[in-house]
Write a protein that binds this DNA or RNA. Structure first.
Lengths: 335, 335
DNA sequence: CTGAAAGCGCTAACAT
DNA sequence: ATGTTAGCGCTTTCAG
């Protein structure tokens, strides 16, 4: 059968608590005993039972992640899985494990309640996609260590972490200016698309602080689809005064934008520059390869993991933050 | 403080073991007592401590997944995360949780040994990408419940599950024949690319059983890159007798193939049909949208979860299997 | 049908 | 520096 701490104690001729102390590197054990006990452990091929340790310590060294992982999500939103990868790595480095729990927005709250009340995890990470008002309420009411991946689209007291899209917008604007572009246009989503809105705001700020401005007729906001972007870009290009560069709020919009530009017989980047955000696989597949502001999402996951562990260790800590890790990857769609 | 089973027992005026039996639906408790105890539980807002239960039951109701989740993996291989999603769902339905553990091939084996010897999971799932000889040896030597996601490229006694690429190849061939194509070519990876090799084999079989054959000059095997595929397709098209359809072993190869065809001024699907395997996001983005044999990978993950739990419940069960869940998604690259 | 008591394997005062 | 002992919260024989 399984060899337990008692077997080791017996074989080593010491008490169980001494073995336990060796296991946990307690200072009070003499070097000689430590070595002896460790030798016995090796001989017996002893490995402390994880369940028993967790139980005795009153901790599970475990974080659960609530996220929507329904059909095709990995294809539609690889982004999320890259965040998860970063999160897992950060947690692992700190001795925690990540439990994946797929859920929809409706069930997320009861899952969280169950986890908290049954103490089946030391903390919860929640992808913003399944975040809801009741869940936020539960989290703050129970005062349980948590972090939301992405900024919730409503006010609350929960801890969240997100990329700074405003900053990314500014990075994009600054880059284009530094490359000599002057008449910059923006194609993005409507006001409820917070990402797009923030990026737009950042672009504005970037231009403003360099003494330029984003002209109203150069801003087109619509659906985040290839088709609607095609429509908007076409309209934009049919106006009298053409921009010399277009910033697209995301990859899908960029796709339609490129179609439209090429449809008008214009060359990228010779006649007009294009750039967008996030380094999706197809940023590199479409012609020309897109210049993007890359927001290191994996790093965001890693930061989230770090913060969550900090929160667990310092329960009164409060985090609500943006992190800024964007940088430009220059490819062929800008000169 | 936390309310425990003892508090419930006291408040309900019964013994701890009675409460435990109510918790676990033991037959021997009278309906009256059950109801009474449950009422007290609700009143006290009692929730059994998960750690303690696991400890007492000697199980963790937990599966760990070993997989390479290094930088950009979610973008390079969304496929894997879709499998993981399916796996998680299947496990959850059966009362198990999925722990994610990122690793490289080298560390995977010692992670597995640790998990097994410390009993920190009831089973292990391993993505084939981190599979190795020593890991296979460990798994069979320790006789621990496991399942490998994907077929290992070496002989062993481990349990694995994979799509049947041979079958998928046949599906592709049959589809093209049924659409009226007759001169079919194949562009794929070299012999060590098992996926490509099996698909090729399936294509051959499909054609053979319909009385056709895959001509040698129509088979080009090289690197799985857009560039090499471009090269191979160009060569193929420069031969005297052109095929009327090309099957590409994967999406990257399809990309280069489409480039080459269009580079020769040929139209898809008018002059030549193209199809490939796996429904990657960019199968839909490139022009024309690709007809693919879709191998429901999420379902493969789900099956893996089901099998793994079966193995846990019936330890002497042996599984080494293909599953076949391919079907054609017809889009614009075939007529 | 219910309860007393012995564990599951490990940790952590407290005593020596 | 080491050992004694009492738990951690729940399950599970075994008696009654």
């Amino acid at each position: 059968m399984k060899v337990t701490i008692r077997d080791v104690a017996k074989a080593a001729g010491v008490s169980v608590s001494t073995v336990s102390k060796v296991l946990n590197g307690h200072y009070s054990i003499s070097e000689k005993t430590v070595e002896h006990v460790q030798k016995v452990m090796r001989e017996l091929d002893y490995h402390p039972n994880a369940n028993a340790q967790n139980f005795a310590f009153g901790t599970s060294k475990t974080i659960v992640l609530l996220a929507d992982m329904s059909q095709n999500m990995a294809f539609r939103n690889p982004h999320m899985f890259e965040i998860i990868s970063g999160l897992e790595e950060a947690l692992r480095k700190r001795g925690y494990r990540l439990i994946l729990q797929g859920t929809d927005e409706t069930s997320a709250c009861s899952y969280a309640e169950d986890i908290i009340s049954r103490n089946s995890a030391d903390g919860i990470a929640i992808h913003v996609g399944v975040m809801s008002h009741p869940l936020a309420a539960t989290l703050t009411r129970m005062n349980f260590p948590h972090i939301v991946l992405g900024m919730p689209d409503f006010e609350s007291q929960v801890c969240w972490i997100d990329n700074n899209n405003i900053y990314s917008g500014t990075v994009a604007a600054n880059f284009l200016l530094s490359e000599g572009y002057k008449k910059i246009a923006y194609i993005g989503g409507k006001s409820y698309d917070l990402g797009s809105t923030h990026r737009l705001q950042g672009v504005r700020q970037g231009l403003a602080s360099a003494g330029y401005r984003l002209e109203d007729q150069y801003i087109w906001l619509g659906e985040s689809t290839r088709a609607d972007s095609f429509r908007m870009t076409t309209k934009l290009l049919e106006q009298g005064d053409k921009p010399d560069a277009i910033i697209c709020s995301n990859n899908y919009i960029a796709l339609g934008c490129v179609d439209a530009i090429q449809g008008k017989g214009l060359k990228i980047p010779k006649d007009i520059g294009v750039m967008t955000f996030d380094d999706y696989p197809f940023s590199q597949i479409i012609e020309p390869k897109l210049t993007v502001v890359d927001i290191n999402v994996r790093d965001m996951g890693a930061q989230a993991g770090k913060f969550l562990i900090d929160i667990i260790k310092h329960p009164n800590m409060q985090i609500q933050t943006y992190i800024t890790t964007s940088s430009v990857i220059k490819r062929e769609s800008t000169r």
